[in-house]
Computed example of a mutant assay.
Amino acid sequence: MMSDHDRITILLSRRLAGELTPAEEEELRLALEQDPMLQALSSALDGVTDAPPRGVTEREEQQMMERGLRQWRLRAAGLHVVGRGAEEAVPMEEVTGVKERSRRMLRIRLIRWSAAAAVVVFGTLGVFRYNKKTPPPTPMQAPVAWHEVAAKYGTRSYLDLPDGSKLWLNAGSKVQYATGKRELTLSGEGFFDIRHDPEHPFLIHAGNVVVKVLGTSLNVRAYPGDSVVETTLIDGKAEIDMPGRAIALRPSEKVTMHNGVQQVHKVVADPTYKTIIETSWVEDKLIFRKEPFREVAAKLERWYNIRIRFGNDKYLDEELTGYFKDQPIKNVMDALQLSLGFHYELAGDSILIK
């Protein structure tokens, strides 16, 4: 059974050849009236009715037809070709089917040319309609691969980040990051050496703050349960976004947020220990200066992977100062005991403060 597509093709070809009967002419006219695009294509076909000029061989005529068909198909695809080389770069397979259908359908030279053009034009119509109704597919994005690295209590870790930045993790800390992103989430404490890339700032999510880094070494501390979130800038540039405020840090500055209050402090090396306390843990130094025992106890738990319990609240807010490097927990507790005068019991991985 002949389709409407084939029927219109034949009618257009017969009209171009001057062989339409009155009935067929009326049939084609009604079809054109029902489809404005067909009217435009019919007018375009009127421009291909001229036969090749005299003196052109059959082979040359065939080559002309093939070049013409290639140009029609390029236009159908929305391409603009300039020059013979670009034109002939189109694979011949694209026009072979059209040419063969034209030869089977028609007998004389004029009909062969017009029918070939009609078939290509209808191919063009199909392209136009497809593009109008069906939007181009959205390119599929590769799934983001997330990674998590943790430093358990009693350990410290180092890792190279995918962008070339470096990260040291303190005990009881972890980070989550994605390949291909200059961004991560920190829970705990980390010292960062961020590779400089002004076009792509590095984002560190820690607690309820976001640290934007351009190329910097800094320390960020945001342990779950701690009352203080702290960012210490050693060198470079960093901006801290926190609720209600953004702070641009300068080298050797520290911003702390405690109970919603932000403060900026100057950071200097401790004159006694000749080191910056905020980053001393990277050198395996455990230092605290005038810190409440409750906060020191939390540091000791992470540093030595132990549990410290207080038999009463007597010593919780007593301030402690100390410097330890490569010392067992018993030596640390003995030193603190001398400072405050408390008693303690050490059993396995548990310490009771009396």
Rank of each mutant, 00 (worst) to 15 (best):
I108E: 07
K152I: 05
Q263G: 09
S114M: 05
Y273V: 04
K314R: 09
L74A: 12
P91C: 08
T256M: 08
S102K: 09
L125Y: 07
T185C: 02
D334A: 13
V229H: 02
E93A: 11
T96H: 04
A297R: 08
K152S: 13
G97V: 08
I234Y: 01
E291L: 12
V127H: 03
H265T: 15
E189V: 00
V209F: 02
N131V: 04
F202N: 06
E183Q: 13
G207E: 08
T232W: 05
A150N: 02
M65T: 06
V220D: 12
D197A: 11
H265R: 12
D163K: 15
E148L: 04
Q39H: 02
R195Y: 01
G348S: 09
L79W: 11
A115Q: 14
D313W: 07
L338K: 14
R245G: 01
T21C: 06
R75V: 05
V210L: 04
W146H: 10
L79R: 12
G85I: 01
E253Q: 15
A238I: 02
V127I: 15
Y158C: 05
F324C: 09
V332P: 09
A238W: 06
R156M: 10
M64P: 00
T21G: 03
L340H: 11
H200S: 09
G341R: 02
G126Y: 07
Y323W: 11
P243S: 13
V82I: 15
K99W: 13
T9Y: 01
D284R: 06
R107K: 14
L214I: 04
D6P: 00
